[in-house]
Design a binder for these strands. Structure first.
Lengths: 332, 332
DNA sequence: TTGAAAGCGCTAACAC
DNA sequence: GTGTTAGCGCTTTCAA
């Protein structure tokens, strides 16, 4: 069933059917009725491929993320999807596993598919990727990473500032021995930003940087456990506070510390990052940094729509954060 | 830049360019080199819309889910996405908010977009939806709900059997006063299945059904708290065990019980459902039912691919479950 | 207002 | 092996 068949059945031309579907006001009521009747009876669905080939607009946005099933990415993707659909756009979702080769092939795929725009959360930034991003003819929004050499709108998270803020929060509470359980450079650039916030906070407040206080592993809960074990067995003077680069890591760390008979926060304060839904119900409830990831997805969606209409606009949006002070941390 | 431009630059015909890109072995090496050279230099990307209009295959699968940012759906979507992309398919992701009208409009959208297949996780099943599902010309896989009147391949979760199993686990441990904290009928059909497993387990073992032991609310943590409060304030004889229909609800319930000075599991055993990543690290670690949602997504992907090749095949896959016995439950 | 015809960028017979 | 041509299903001038 195509437009020609409908036209025949309604005894009108293809053009008229097309008009009824796209500019109904431009066709007189009687014919319009005839056509709509046929459309209803036959269940005719206009072929979007053919239409889009002509109008050069697919109303499709490509979304490239390293993963989907983590709180952060799932929130972002839902924010993007909902906001886009409010504006008549839909999402082709692509998972990159933070692998550059996959990312590049996704870009090629999306170009072929003629998407109207792309929202990209890079794993790591490389030369090849940066070049690709700067030369791609498609509207493109970068998520999570503000590279000065990239001329695109960006939605980023102030990993550095927020990390620094929570470490300074510890310092204000009188802590001087502060450990950091983070994420490997190789695994994510995010880990480095959060680490830098930590080291700079110490430096700013003239506290020594103790290499034994730093552990960098993976995102997994287990890595938080390992990290705390590492830090607390290695160091001579034990830390009084631990900044974990995610709430999962914080929970893992708390588990280790409690298994060693330490009380949180009486013996050690522990803070996390990302404020999981369960963090408030954990025992002790976890002090954390909260970003509204869902909203960042909405903003990215807004940006890409804006860029489709006005490609020259470059915006930078840095998502605000909150320190949520709970029972896992206390004054020294 | 289109195929005609490339042809001109390479001094060959459009067909030759097309062949180089789709059946390179059918064109001699010299011309192939010339064409590939031009493609590389110009960065030409063939327009997939035009191609797909001819070959009638988009290699796109529509995925309709109620939400994205919950552990369950995020896992499913990632499973689908990864498995599909291994097979050269990609995903258009649509969020329905479990709203029938939105679901129906998504189906229409996907038909127009000429997707090769659809994977659909319905909110609730209605007459209109069932009819649509049975008549849609597109290969379609149903997720999460095995309706006897639907003639499609299905991937489902044995909510009933698993719920019954965990309640029977309680019964084997000597519990007789078992409460249920579930989810409103209106919110999700899943809630009812889990409740049925609960009531049937009691019935099977000749235990009385006490209406005061049942609370049905939302998915939220807070609802678990409220549920426990409700059950424990209302009942004369207090329950010795609580089956919560999700781990979030279990955590909420545990929080309430602990706030009342009760020890878990000494005073009350609490079991959850879905085995969140944090459940093992919670204090006490939570007894739960584990489904491999990621894998269910992979299976759905497999089914839809199979249906594209062989539309007549109808398969039913019921995902297995495991009871994970941890510290939140014990013998009476 | 309506219809005829050209064209979007590609593939696939078919003839050479 | 290569080019010519028709056609996929739609929109959009243009003329009537």
């Amino acid at each position: 069933m195509n437009i020609k068949d409908v036209a025949k059945l309604a005894k009108v031309s293809k053009s008229t059917v097309s008009r009824v579907l796209n500019n109904p006001e431009r066709v007189n009521a009687e014919m319009r009725q005839r056509v709509l009747e046929v459309v209803r009876e036959t269940g005719y669905r206009p072929n979007a491929l053919a239409k889009e080939l002509v109008i050069k607009e697919t109303r499709l946005i490509g979304v490239i993320v390293p993963r989907i099933n983590t709180n952060v990415f799932a929130d972002i993707v839902e924010g993007i999807t909902l906001r886009l659909s409010e504006n008549g756009y839909n999402v082709i979702l692509l998972c990159s596993k933070a692998d550059e080769a996959i990312e590049i092939s996704h870009f090629e795929f999306l170009q072929k598919k003629q998407v109207d725009g792309i929202i990209f959360f890079p794993g790591n930034m490389t030369l090849a990727l940066r070049k690709l991003i700067n030369t791609l003819p498609t509207p493109l929004i970068i998520l999570g990473l503000d590279d000065p050499l990239i001329k695109r709108s960006v939605v980023s998270y102030d990993e550095y500032k927020s990390s620094k803020a929570i470490v300074e929060h510890f310092i204000r509470q009188g802590h001087k021995q502060i450990a950091f359980i983070g994420i490997d450079k190789e695994r994510s650039p995010v880990g480095q930003e959060r680490k830098l916030g930590y080291t700079d906070a110490l430096r700013t407040h003239d506290l020594p940087l103790n290499i034994d206080y730093i552990y960098e592993g993976s995102f997994e809960l287990q890595s938080g456990f390992e990290g705390a074990k590492h830090v607390f067995s290695k160091s001579v003077i034990k830390p009084t506070a631990v900044f974990a680069a995610t709430d999962y890591l914080a929970i893992g760390a708390i588990n280790y510390l409690q298994s060693q008979g330490l009380s949180i926060p009486e013996d050690v304060s522990v803070a996390g990052f990302d404020d999981l839904e369960i963090s408030v119900f954990f025992n002790p409830s976890i002090t954390s940094i909260k970003f509204d990831y869902f909203h960042s997805g909405e903003v990215a969606a807004q940006f890409v729509i804006e860029n489709i209409q006005e490609p020259s606009i470059i915006r930078k949006y840095i998502l605000g954060f909150q320190i949520i002070n709970r029972d896992s941390t206390s004054e020294l």
